[in-house]
């Protein structure tokens, strides 16, 4: 299915929001307002946005350590996200989680997760719940090429295929698991080809083309809602930043490789598409969109700064539910 002009503009807004949010998060991490670690998704925005644009609010997704993009694409509130990064009381996790553990169950965002491969089986459980509920909801796993080599990938896909769970497994193949090239770790570089082993469709898509991602996701969602089981979608993409934003962090990736991928900017790709398809999209319109996005990010920072730090003794809250 082709995305409507309105949806394409919304996709552009979301991708630009992810980028501007993370640029700010990176700056604020470097100036000390954000703690611990930040993993940026910049360069891969088309995957989260393309897939989530094919979902309903009550569909569920799970993320990994590089989770800001998935949160924003699923509709998370920028204010509460930024407040969480700032370690504040009004953050999504009341300051307990930080960048690697942002979740919003009310919009079907089952959490970023600091363990590579950790989310694969968890979200498969969400798929099982959706199947038992029988209302046509689907569950989506975002994971990287690194996680595709973990046992949980194979275990989860086998179970989802056998039980025909309404699932999308979306591999963001950026060719680097932290600082190790997939060429050194993958027996075969294409992850999608593994789908054959489980008897499910395995689709390779240009992960920097949001419309192509959207179309692949739409097909897979329709299949899942119809009870035909899971699909593995491999999105070829690339992260522009190092594995983490930590100053001085090693980044062994060749500069020419990074530059080649930056030339395939997913945001510029959609801007070019919009100009070409509709002939009306202008640089001025994009500038207005960016201004609005920058305002939203600035508002999120203001919200975070205004939110108090949690009381120290709140560290004892929420270990157990009532």
């Amino acid at each position: 299915m082709t995305a409507s002009p309105e949806l394409q503009r919304e996709m552009l807004r979301q991708m630009q929001t992810i980028r501007r949010f993370e640029e700010r998060a990176s700056d604020d991490y470097h100036n000390g307002a954000i703690y611990g670690v930040v993993h940026c998704y910049i360069g891969e925005e088309a995957v989260a946005v393309g897939v989530c644009s094919a979902l309903n609010k009550d569909d569920q997704i799970i993320s990994n350590h590089r989770g800001h993009g998935h949160c924003i694409a699923k509709g998370a509130d920028l204010n509460r996200m930024m407040a969480e990064l700032y370690g504040r009381q009004d953050g999504y996790c009341k300051g307990k989680g930080g960048s690697m553990h942002i979740a919003d169950f009310s919009i079907g965002m089952l959490g970023a997760n600091g363990i590579v491969g950790g989310g694969l089986s968890i979200v498969t459980g969400a798929g099982l719940a959706a199947q038992l509920e029988g209302k046509g909801r689907v569950a989506v796993c975002f994971f990287g090429d690194g996680a595709s080599n973990a046992g949980s990938f194979h275990e989860s896909l086998n179970i989802a295929a056998r039980w025909k769970l309404p699932m999308l497994y979306v591999c963001e193949h950026n060719s680097w698991a932290a600082n190790t090239s997939s060429r050194m770790t993958h027996a075969r570089d294409d992850v999608a080809s593994r789908a054959a082993g489980y008897g499910i469709p395995g689709v390779v898509v240009d992960g920097n083309d949001v419309l192509a991602v959207y179309e692949a996701a739409t097909d897979a969602v329709a299949r899942a809602r119809a009870g035909e089981g899971p699909t593995l979608i491999e999105c070829k993409t690339y992260r522009w930043r190092a594995h983490t934003e930590r100053p001085g962090a090693a980044d062994p990736r060749p500069l020419e490789e990074i530059a080649a991928w930056m030339a395939k900017d997913p945001i510029q790709h959609l801007v070019d598409d919009l100009k070409q398809q509709q002939g009306q999209y202008s640089d001025a319109e994009f500038q207005a969109l960016d201004d609005a996005v920058m305002s939203a990010v600035a508002a999120a920072v203001a919200f975070a700064e205004a939110s108090p730090f949690p009381a120290p003794e709140a560290a004892l809250d929420d270990v157990f539910a009532d």
Binding site: L110, L120, V123, A126, L128, A129
Partner: peptide
């Protein structure tokens, strides 16, 4: 893990 995701759902 499936149990965790199902419980959260």
């Amino acid at each position: 893990g499936i149990a965790i995701g199902a419980a959260g759902s």
